[in-house]
Design a protein around this nucleic acid. Structure first.
Lengths: 211, 211
DNA sequence: ATTCAAGCGGACACGGTGTCCACATATTCC
DNA sequence: GGAATATGTGGACACCGTGTCCGCTTGAAT
């Protein structure tokens, strides 16, 4: 479980790199295989519908047996999560300790707008991976999601919004990978327009002095 | 395809009752089977995870062969859509010609809040069916979704919001069945709180005079 | 060099999907 | 009313993806 040390507050930043062995240094061939698996998976997720990628696809593209793949990853979503890991950690770091408006220091509505912009950017660059990782139900159970939730709760509270607990979900819902995919690829909206629309909502919702 | 005649404006209200034959009156046994299938499916969707219901489950619960089921419905989602049909039609009617604030006549922010309330009610009462019908991608391709989209576009335009096209999706995203399921069943929020939070957003977003 | 645990992958059983075809049964026409 | 016909029915089949098991291989520690 490679329990990364020193998370501030003990808050789980993200599921720590899935599929990486815990105690000892991994065997050379195992490490090589893991790298091949990740590389092959990244390619596959990008070139076909990520939700249609099977364990068999990944295994044969990586040149390993299926059981070898299963040894490390219980399903394709976990592979995608592993690939996503570093990107999400980076963003999470920027949100917690980076410069405003994404980091602390800016008013809540601006921080929310910046968060939306950052997420749209993440979605735009890694949509296939996110579709592979967070399809349906799963979205709500990843470590990353809990982090976004906590962040928004803080912003909502700071802005004096009523019932932050209930407002978190509606604010997060537009960032569901499938929603973004629909807007960008089906409806043809450029990411900038999506981000702009979200920024407008952010300011309307949390801007101005509330009470 | 039973192309229902006389939709006002030619706007597709909803996918017309899926699985119902088109031209002639259906054979007596066929009609009976169809009714049995729908009744059995309604039961199944309610009593287990709707996304885990298989075609085989429905067929045997309805006492018909699998191929008979396939004759009418290509997959389980279509069965759920058929069951949902009437409820959604009803709501759509109320939105177009019913009394305010759901129907025409109220200011956009109030109409949006009323729409949210109605949708939360629909979700609360028929969540299993909606989960079965709109899982993932599919959500965006049902007739109902296009209708909600059109409705919100009108409201956004009336409120003078910028880029209604891009704002529609963020407003609709919180109503995704999976998002609602997460809030109500996983997080334990009562539907009233969800509706209240959405009403608050509606007023913040579209309320007040916008330039 | 030997030992031994860790890694590996072929093979298997299971379950769901979607299709095909021979048979049965309502409806229609004479 | 009875044959002709179109329609509905369900068992059977082939395919694909999943998840697991077990005997073989190979890298690392002694």
């Amino acid at each position: 479980m490679e329990n990364g040390a020193g998370h501030p507050e003990g808050l789980l930043l993200d599921e720590p790199s899935v599929g990486a062995p815990a105690g000892r240094r991994p065997r050379a061939d195992a490490a090589r295989n893991r790298a091949q698996i990740l590389a092959a998976a990244r390619r596959l997720f990008a070139e076909k519908d990520p939700r249609a990628v099977t364990m068999g696809d990944i295994a044969s593209a990586a040149g390993v047996g299926r059981a070898t793949l299963y040894r490390r990853f219980p399903d394709t979503a976990s592979v995608a999560v592993a690939l996503l890991d570093e990107h999400e950690r980076e963003l999470q770091g920027a949100m917690m300790t980076g410069p405003p408006p994404l980091g602390p220091g800016a008013p809540p509505d601006e921080r929310l707008a910046a968060f939306y912009a950052a997420m749209v950017d993440l979605l735009d660059r890694h949509l296939p991976l996110l579709l592979g990782a967070e399809t349906g139900e799963r979205r709500y159970t990843t470590g990353a999601y809990a982090f976004w939730r906590a962040h928004l709760r803080v912003l909502l509270r700071a802005a004096g919004a009523p019932d932050p607990e209930a407002l978190v979900e509606p604010l997060l819902a537009p960032l569901a990978p499938e929603a973004f995919a629909h807007q960008r690829d089906r409806a043809g909206l450029p990411p900038e327009r999506i981000a702009a629309a979200l920024a407008w909502s952010a300011r309307r919702l949390l801007g101005g002095q509330v009470r």
